[in-house]
Write a protein that binds this DNA or RNA. Structure first.
Length: 435
DNA sequence: TCTGGGGTCCTAGGACCC
DNA sequence: TCTGGGGTCCTAGGACCC
């Protein structure tokens, strides 16, 4: 049996913990550059704002409907996520953190009334962190996802499903007919693994509800759509094809990419931008104890804007796999210089670290290669010190000169005009209670 | 004029997730 | 004027091997 614990409107809920005046109001949290809505309160959903709606198209609702738009505060959300996850882990013996606001919990061997237990965990998370959640439970992960969807929808739209499913929904103990009823009341596109494309194809052959999909023959699904959807169908039928993965493998690639706050044409600014992206990517690389053997840099113009389009990328192989910020910054800057073409309004660039391998694998230099770098041991100590200082005193306290004030003005920085304080992670931002 | 069969590896592109 | 970022897995097709 599996549970899926999922934060309701997670980013919005994090903001509301520290600004209770946002309760009951339509609120959206915007993507980087205040681009589009990536989280919506129930009130915002009720206004008809779709996921991903561009801010410039909905900002008139500020006056018309009291809509509040906030810049994404990922430092806050990450910290709140850690708190929520540690409490959700109390539900069962294994936990897989699937995204910033969702975790699967394996319920193997858990005795007693699962629904009562889930309600208890849910109310503990609410009381201790201020975050509302919903919990779905079922014999497979795909069904647990579905149960979670039902729990949320039953709470948000009374009448859509039986009221007892609100907040906590356990499909595992329901009579078969009741399970069929909720599957028949749910559109096939809500299934985990069925995106817009496949949903359309399914509808074209008369598969409209989750129940329709669950009743398909797995072999037919395999030949028509492939093994991925076949697994989904089997999971809907109650046959587990996925288990809780509580020790995720290290990532195979690490990316840091950003859209710019405004278009950028000149090379020095682009070099500075990718130097900073490489710095961030290198940090992530060291956190998972990997080395990169290659680095990809890309830059592109906007498909939404008129004018000449340009999209270029270059892979820079690294002679020695490394996790050294300075080496990676150098490679990123070199790649950018190599592919740069003047005369374009670039809006996005990024760095991806490729061909990752465990840091425990040491590759020696061939004796005939010049030993022009400081011994690797010293560099490792330097990077450890830099990470520790930045962890303690804030990002960028120590940084490579390529990303600093010596460079060009930081014209490419993100737009974040509606950013809230870092309530839980910066001393100066901690809320003060007054009697 | 005639030109095998079976396998691996790599890459690009598509689809999905949140 | 203004449209995010970071991942995964699968498949098809080409290059190459014996």
């Amino acid at each position: 049996m599996y549970a899926l614990v999922d934060g309701n409107n997670f980013y919005v809920s994090c903001e509301r913990v520290f600004r209770p005046s946002l309760n009951g109001r339509p609120v959206v949290v915007l993507s980087n550059n205040d681009g589009c809505a990536v989280a919506r309160s129930n009130e915002a959903k009720a206004l008809g704002i779709p996921m991903g709606a561009p801010w410039f198209q909905i900002q008139h609702l500020q006056h018309a409907a009291g809509l509040v738009g906030l810049s994404a505060n990922f430092t806050l959300y990450g910290d709140m996520s850690d708190r929520m996850m540690s409490l959700a882990a109390g539900l069962g013996p294994t936990q897989e953190i699937y995204s910033i606001d969702e975790s699967f919990v394996g319920l193997h061997g858990v005795r007693g009334d699962l629904v009562a237990r889930a309600r208890q965990v849910r109310s503990r998370i609410l009381r201790w962190t201020g975050l509302p959640t919903c919990i779905g439970m079922a014999p497979t992960k795909t069904l647990a996802k579905l149960a979670n969807h039902i729990a949320k929808t039953a709470e948000r739209k009374p009448g859509s499903y039986p009221a007892e499913h609100a907040q906590v929904c356990h499909l595992g103990t329901l009579p078969a007919q009741d399970v069929d009823d909720v599957l028949a009341a749910t559109a096939v596109g809500e299934v985990w693994g069925v995106g817009p494309r496949i949903a359309k194809q399914l509808q074209a052959v008369g598969i409209h509800t989750v129940l329709d999909l669950a009743r398909m023959n797995p072999a037919t699904v395999r030949s028509g759509w492939g093994v991925v959807l076949e697994r989904t169908v089997r999971e809907l039928q109650g046959q587990p094809c996925m288990s809780v993965d509580d020790a995720p493998a290290p990532k195979q690639q690490i990316a840091c990419t950003r859209s710019f706050g405004q278009p950028v044409c000149d090379l020095p600014a682009l070099v500075q931008a990718v130097s900073e992206f490489a710095t961030r990517a290198a940090q992530k690389l060291r956190q998972q104890h990997s080395l990169a053997a290659g680095l990809l840099v890309f830059v592109r113009t906007s498909p939404h804007r008129a004018g000449p389009q340009c999209s270029r990328s270059v892979v820079v192989p690294l002679r020695l796999p490394t996790d050294d910020t300075l080496a990676l910054v150098q490679a990123a800057a070199e790649g950018m210089r190599r592919m740069y073409v003047p005369g374009h309004a670039f809006v996005k660039a990024g760095v991806m670290l490729l061909d990752l391998l465990p840091a425990s694998v040491q590759q020696g230099l061939l004796a005939l290669e010049p030993a022009d770098e400081p011994p690797a041991r010293d560099r490792t100590r330097l990077m450890t010190a830099v990470d520790a200082i930045n962890e303690r005193y804030g990002q960028g306290t120590v940084h490579s000169a390529a990303t600093g004030q010596a460079g060009p003005p930081r014209t490419w920085g993100m737009r974040q005009e509606r950013l809230t304080p870092q309530y839980t992670t910066r001393l100066a931002d901690i809320p003060v209670a007054r009697a």
